[in-house]
Design a protein around this nucleic acid. Sequence first.
DNA 1: CTGAAAGCGCTAACAA
DNA 2: TTGTTAGCGCTTTCAG
Lengths: 351, 351
Amino acid sequence: MVQRKRVTLRDLAEHLNINTSTVSRALSEKSSEMISPDVVKRVKKAALEMGYKQNAAAYALKMGSTKTIGMIIPDLMNPVFPPIIRGIQSVLDRYGYTAFLAYSENNEITAHTEVERLISRGVDGIIYAAAFRTDSVVDLCKSQGVPLVLVNRVVDQGDVDTVKVDDSLGIKMAVDHLLELGHRKIGFIAGPKNISVSYIRLRAFTQTMAEHDLEVEPHRIVEAHALSEDAGEKAMSVFLGQNSDATAIIASNDLIALGCYTALRQFGYTCPKRLSIVGFNNMPYLDWFATPLTTVSIPHFQMGERSAELLLKRIKSGNLDFNEEVLLKPKLVIRGSTAPVVRRKKKSDAS
Amino acid sequence: MVQRKRVTLRDLAEHLNINTSTVSRALSEKSSEMISPDVVKRVKKAALEMGYKQNAAAYALKMGSTKTIGMIIPDLMNPVFPPIIRGIQSVLDRYGYTAFLAYSENNEITAHTEVERLISRGVDGIIYAAAFRTDSVVDLCKSQGVPLVLVNRVVDQGDVDTVKVDDSLGIKMAVDHLLELGHRKIGFIAGPKNISVSYIRLRAFTQTMAEHDLEVEPHRIVEAHALSEDAGEKAMSVFLGQNSDATAIIASNDLIALGCYTALRQFGYTCPKRLSIVGFNNMPYLDWFATPLTTVSIPHFQMGERSAELLLKRIKSGNLDFNEEVLLKPKLVIRGSTAPVVRRKKKSDAS
DNA sequence: CTGAAAGCGCTAACAA
DNA sequence: TTGTTAGCGCTTTCAG
């Protein structure tokens, strides 16, 4: 039963005593109509029986299209990416495309290398969810003529197809929520500023505060060295050391917010009693948490879908001189980590 | 700057006025030594300058190896799979292999179809983390001569390379833990019995109980229709309806355990006060939960690594008539969802 | 409606 | 050490 060699078109042709080109045409949706129905039926039957599977490498070599695309994300462990990936694949599947998955590990060099590997694999396009504010990957794809779509990260260069959420709006909703709860002394735990979302969210924070005539003093803003739990914890420790009077903070993403929880506990504070926290992303399972995190929810799955649609459209058109921007709306999810500010009369709850 | 056509070996050869085969050899690690060092240097320089990237399709067609493998998992949303995938890729990367990711959605037909697609893509092997107890994918791979490794699921057929954890040991540790806490009336929320882990874990449960002379009555065992939160909730509702006196349950996996939390709350009960719960898998973020789940931890990342190593070994050897079984050890992680049994004197805590 | 033949880009056996 | 050539499996133009 073990057949080490795969069945080819020629095997089928010889078996049926017809030409390989006839077999090819009979099996192809778009050219089977130029073959007599009878032959088509016989070919399809034989193909099934003999277990014929098209050789993708040969097809790719001949046609110049592999029907594959590459996805690059920072890190699969960050729970926001699985739904994005599924969104991408759900539309890819409908068009017979398959995706390679690669990781930037939040490192531009790594990302560049991975993109080169993907190009060598002959991907028809790339979805890049890990771009830095200035990113050599953009130029690389341009110079190689490979369609590129950015997801949830933008690039200073401009001229790139992009699918993103309105981060500024998300932050505005978070700030407004805290203001309504009576908070005025609000801090921000930012992400690395070479990452576009970090930069944009921080800028939106200061802008929104300014619109409410609330000046943000520099010590109210601390930059974490990564968009991770660990980095969030370190940054929040610094923040608490110099902001004993703050009553709320916004974190650049959920993982940083979790780090803030940890730092808060180390200082003997509780959330939301002593300090309210808002995250960004709405990662899974937050509802189960001891302190369920209030956060800005973004449509992960839909982002994936839209980016795949955009990429396929670009691949089909072959026109790379044009670019498009898809903007999705975020939503505030209010949970237990935010509460009305309490006017502390005596010594507070710092037990 | 936009070069729609990629640079080929021939472009390089013509540019340097030498033969394509010379260029090929100069660029290949294993045959560059039969070319004069001077030429090698010139070729490499030109390749870099002109942005040459090997055409993977042509290589695959010529060599009969795509240097890709396929991974099939039930569902990316289940948080146990990301670390397994990363483990697989960490070893694949070292050998220049790339992976396709596909989903069975816990459906054997879907799995079969996806495997066919992967084979058509020419994958050199397949890692299958979604097998059912009897599974046509195994025969498919055998008949097509495609190396296959099973991860965390086994198959009744036998004769397949497998990487798994000692589920029976894990369940035994869970039972022992509950017994030590004084529980005797212990229930089990099983997964679908056509999935091997569900079957094995349930069997291990009844066996371990029997070894302690504790007979398990049938109504103490309820089968969820899937290894999911939702299915767990439904099953637990049934269980609670017919087991008002049980003091502890073991769930077939963490997601089912979460569903049990929900059902428990709907019945007005609390965990662990009224009922202790143990899960299986140790998914991420459990420490943050309002009721942190006691669970059996399995080495996800390592499972991925081992399965990739096994698959590459099998690909290299070309010998499919031999099979191996890697068995990994689980570990019990005790958290807040389990507590000593309390002798209820009056009306309990059913508030 | 079907066949013959070329060629996608690469590697390797064979020649020189 | 380098060149010549064939061919991997497929699609498609050009003939018939």
